[in-house]
Amino acid sequence: PRPDVDALPPGTHLLFAQSGRIDHVPLEGYDMKKKDAKAVLHLPEKVIIGVAYDCVDKMVYWTEITSPSISRASIQGGEPTAVIRSDLESPEGIAIDHLGRTMFWTDSLKDRIEVASLDGTQRRVIIDSDLVNPRAIITDPPHGNLYWADWNREAPKIETSYMDGSNRRVLIKDNLGLPNGLTYDSPSSLLCWADAGTHKVECMNPSRGDRSEVMEGIRYPFGVTSYGKNIYYTDWQRDSVVAVDRYSGKESDEMQPQKRTKLYGITTAYSQCPSGQNYCSVN
């Protein structure tokens, strides 16, 4: 396929960053329609790390580290616009609360987590202590929860807080290596992570605290996202997107883009927003 800049057709897609571009692959059921994979955005001079999707306005958001910034564009073919340009050093993970109309991101040099409205206004630091290498961040909008991972080699951890940074707690600190990717699946209430140190995908119900292994022996995961029965992760050694059936714990598919280079963040672009509301959307 020609990697042209193109609008995203209807349906649910995976969006993933490959250095200077954001690609999409349509999902048919849970299968990747690999032949229809294309670039949504070509930004060859950028290094894109995190991607997030706003299902309300159908916009993709991303973090970029060469001239550290956060930008967005309509997936129906809009111009990229920077929404945050100042006071960033190494923005990596990004997550959206589509109900509260806010975005959250981690910065691994400033060692903090910030929030802002989707247009970049009303920016505020919500966590600025006890962070070493924060990367993945994910929201659970209906419950107003935030989850993030810190791959600090001395003491890796996965933490949670409310969306204003209050009620911060460490969820997991044992048997972690390099938890690079996080995803939260609302229907099953499962928080899952992909770990490039333990080479495992694991999940946990954050309120019950029970932890289970989905798959072991994976190579070098970076980003991870979930959709229905599948977990999809990007891999730095395979330069590909790998699909794992979370119930059988087996790899079900792989997609390797034509250009062989590192893949970074990945997210699911739902055709329709999951329903729900939270206190930020009400107040």
Partner: peptide
């Protein structure tokens, strides 16, 4: 650290 991104100016 090889797990970091943006380790050097390109």
């Amino acid at each position: 650290d090889p797990n970091a991104v943006g380790n050097c100016n390109r």
